[in-house]
Design a protein around this nucleic acid. Structure first.
Lengths: 198, 198
DNA sequence: GCTATTATTAACAGGATTGTTAAATAGTTT
DNA sequence: AAACTATTTAACAATCCTGTTAATAATAGC
């Protein structure tokens, strides 16, 4: 299973073969089919595990008592830190949605639910702050997209950059990502609290 | 060639077969090999065309005479508009870098050159503005990453989102992307001109 | 110890993929 | 019209993939 997870996360469903998995696990590929029946079954197991973690990561963001910015900042940081523990997840999900969306169908409604829940919370929170005039007037959806795309792309594009330029940035991922996290938080903060120059 | 381009852009190198291309073009796959020899040759032609356009898009950003913010804003907008005309390009390049980096090797040095050139220009421009105290103190690299990742992910994640939720957002891409462009520009602007709250 | 279940392998079937080739077809030249 | 060239096709080879199966080895239960 761990061999399968590594390979599926790196190569996605279509480019991973049962023979590769078997090879990495040190068994014959007939074994895999004996225990898991089909490649899809193995994939679903890997996907399940990762989707559970992903969906779980949507929860702990919302603590209603804390001040607005603290809540939002910790939300961003939590999301970013989660990705740091699962750096291959964004590209993996992206790949699966892109090339095997049928395998994601089981999660569609749950994802929609989670998104609606978190967006509802986010909307209310932002609206209240805007009404009180404490933050700049902004479309909450765009703000959410800002956070999500900034966070995700940090993890999707950094490995791609290194594949192209292996010389730079070898091993100092940790620091790069920490810098990136700070920048993203600063960016969102200035979006909400900066002067309106228009 | 146009059939090949469509398919390679949509599915990448590994998931596109010469039979698919032939089928879409209405010929037998033996024809393709007669004229192009190998699948890789066809791919290289498609990649060449798209990389030329991509690299060309790096150029017109730099007009040294205009005011700082106008230059930067038009740089962001130009980049965004270029992607709007080539919406599949980011995912295509991402895919190629990820799974077939050897096919990108020919462009590596040219990409590096373009990046260095544009970064040099960007650094100087930002530094001058910071020294004059007209913008907030910021790491120019992080700012560049902000722009690039925000722009790219708008085009990479929107199609993915629609694959998951086909119901929402059908056909209104244009408006969505225009909104997104405005938001990205506003985001960068507030990053540079907003109050320093730390 | 002996049987029954489980684990493991090698071999294979069926299908798809890339690329080749020899033969047939169409087109051009003279 | 004849000869030559370019185009197109069907068939094939070699390889790889998923999944099955029948035979063998290991293990457990009694």
């Amino acid at each position: 299973m761990s061999a399968a997870e590594e390979l599926f996360l790196e190569n996605g469903y279509n480019l991973t073969t049962t023979t590769m998995i078997a090879g990495k696990a040190g068994v014959t590929h007939a074994m895999l089919h004996y225990y898991f029946r089909t490649k899809e079954h193995i994939f679903i197991k890997v996907l399940d595990k990762n989707m559970e973690e992903l969906l779980a990561s949507f929860q702990p963001v919302m603590k209603k008592d804390a001040p607005f910015w603290d809540t939002l900042e910790s939300g961003i940081a939590t999301h970013f830190d989660f990705l740091m523990k699962h750096p291959g997840l964004p590209a993996f999900i992206f790949d699966t949605v892109r090339f095997n969306p049928e395998l994601m169908e089981n999660y569609r409604e749950r994802i929609r639910g989670s998104l609606e829940k978190i967006m509802g919370f986010h909307y209310k929170m932002i609206q209240k702050e805007m009404d009180a005039g404490r933050i700049r007037r902004t479309d909450p959806l765009q703000l959410m997209l800002d956070v999500i795309t900034l966070n995700l792309s940090a993890f999707m594009l950094l490995p791609a950059a290194r594949k192209l330029f292996p010389d730079i940035k070898a091993g100092e991922d940790r620091r790069i990502l920490e810098d990136r996290k700070k920048e993203i938080i600063a960016l969102i903060k200035s979006r909400l609290y900066g002067n309106d120059m228009d």
